[in-house]
Structure formats: structure tokens, C-alpha cells
Amino acid sequence: MTSLRYAEALNRALREEMTRDPMVWLFGEDIATYGGVFKVTKDLLGEFGPGRVRDTPISEQTLTAMAVTAAMAGTRPVLEIMYADFLPLSIDALVNQAGVFDYIWGGQVSIPMVLRTQGGGGAGAGAQHSKSLDAFVAHIPGLKVVAPATPADAYGLLKAAIRDPNPVIVLEHKLLYNLRGEVPEDGGLIEIGRARTAREGRDVSIFATSRMVHLSLEAAEKLAAEGIEAEVIDLRSLRPLDVGAIVASVAKTHHAVVVNEGWRFCGYGAELSATIMEQAFDDLDAPVERVGAMDVAIPYSEPLEKTVLPDVEAIMAAVRRARR
């Protein structure tokens, strides 16, 4: 085990996979010479050269479509979309191409592409650089979507994503890049589609994604002082969803809170909530509580932004409502 920052863990995963397989190559805006705006691709240009670590023009729509066919034609592209807020420019290639070609062509193709991006608020980056658009991509059949919350998961899920024969979206979080944690020396692949129990508890289950996992753990510690033992499940894989882990936890605690940083209305939390109602209704002692961003654009002003985004207090309040 080594202690690495989240960004370093991603960097190591890329380096190892590029060393292992010469068909793995990286492209995106400012990923090579600049090393990536969050330094995830730092030093890789020098190690692998411009043929495999490629700066691109600012052309997200075409870059994403190129990843689809370059993957189909035998390479393993890893595309970085600098901000999740730019995903709408990529959406055509995801919803009309990456997710559907294998299906509408009768199972004849494999699209082993990875799209890495980062979202989330709390950095004062304003409405066009702060969103969590998890629901946009998790909505699409034929894709896999992961959202690592820890350095170990960032490392293991990115490696698994690169080796996966399907298109995989890796949703990182801008406030997690400096988070430090233990990462296995090598190997350490994490199966896509498996949730992780971040904290065990008997009274209520908190199902959280990405940075919300850490806020949920903090909330759980505080709630313990009130005598409420919360279980925190880090979903890790948004699609496919580990429904089994969700149902098992609800069967144990009989209370559920879902926490996702995206907008509540038609958001990823809504899907989680519906899944729990459909799959675990008989085990529930109370309605599912849902925590998410308020349904407004993410404002720049620090106090306003704090109000819009879910925080520890909001999660604690939701748990208390669920336990009432």
C-alpha cells in the first residue's frame, strides 16, 4: 500500500495501463504539455510521447465521436473532457453512438472507450463549471458509469474501465483530487458494478456517490453522538447499479437516505429512491429521504453556492426525518 492523492492514483492507473497495452492512448484538451488542468495526466507525455498522449483542439463533440470509432477499430482511447459541464457537447456521441452501436448492429462491435471527466461544486467556479450531470450519462443504456470517491477506487475503477470492453464514463470530482488515501501497490482492479460499505450501521442506510460519501461519513459520525448508527454505502458504480447491496442494507436498517450532488428533479437520487421503493418496499419503515442540489443554476457567491449544494447538515436532517 502507498499513500497517494486521488489525482496521483488516477495518474498511476493511466501509466500502468499504457505500459501494459500499447493500444491505450490518451487525448483531450491540455492533457499533454500542460499535464491536465488537475494534473491527472502529469508527466505522461514525456514517458509515452505525443503519439499516445495527445493535446487536442477544443472540439468535444467530435473528440467523443472519434473515441467511439477509434475504440471500435481496435484501439483503447481514454478521452478527458475537462469539466462535466461540457458533457452536453459529448452527449450525441454517447446517447446515439457509444451506447447503442453494439445493440443496433446486432452485437457485432465492441467499444472499449473511456471518457474521464470531473464535476461538482464548492470551488466557486460558477454555473458552467460546477455541475454534477451524473443523471445525463447514467440515463443511457449501453454505457457503464463509475464515480470513485477514494484514491483506491479512483485507481482500481479507472484500470477496470480501461480494460472493459464497453464504453465507460469515469466521473471524478474536482474537490477530491487532493484527497489522500492508501492505494494497493499494483493490480487492485475494482469490479465495476459493486458498491462498497464505507461505514457499517444498524439504524439507517445512507446511499451516497462521489464526494457525498465523505459528507455522509462525517454526518454519520455526528449522528453517532445522537445515538443513531448510520450505514454509509458508497455506490461507486452508477450504472450498472449494485441493487443487491442496496436491498441488503435496507433489509438491515429499514431506513434509507439517498445523497447525490446533482439536481434533485429527475436526478440520480430520484432513480435511487425509486429503486429502493420498488425493490425493498416491504423492508422500509419510513419513506426514502432524498438529498441533492437545489433546482437552480449553481451560483458563484460563496454563501449562495453553499446553500444550493448538499452539506453535512442537510444529510443529518434527512436522516433525522427518516428516523422520525
Binding site: 465521436a65 472519434m66 470509432t69 477509434a70 477499430a73 481496435g74 456521441a93 446515439n96
Partner: peptide
Amino acid sequence: GAQVSLGTGLAFANKYR
């Protein structure tokens, strides 16, 4: 128009390989 970007990606893979 999508086939234009997709075709460009195919050409990229051919050159890469």
C-alpha cells in the same frame, strides 16, 4: 453529420495502428 466525426475517428485509429 455524425458520420464525419466517426469517420475521422476511424482514420485516426488506422494511422495509430
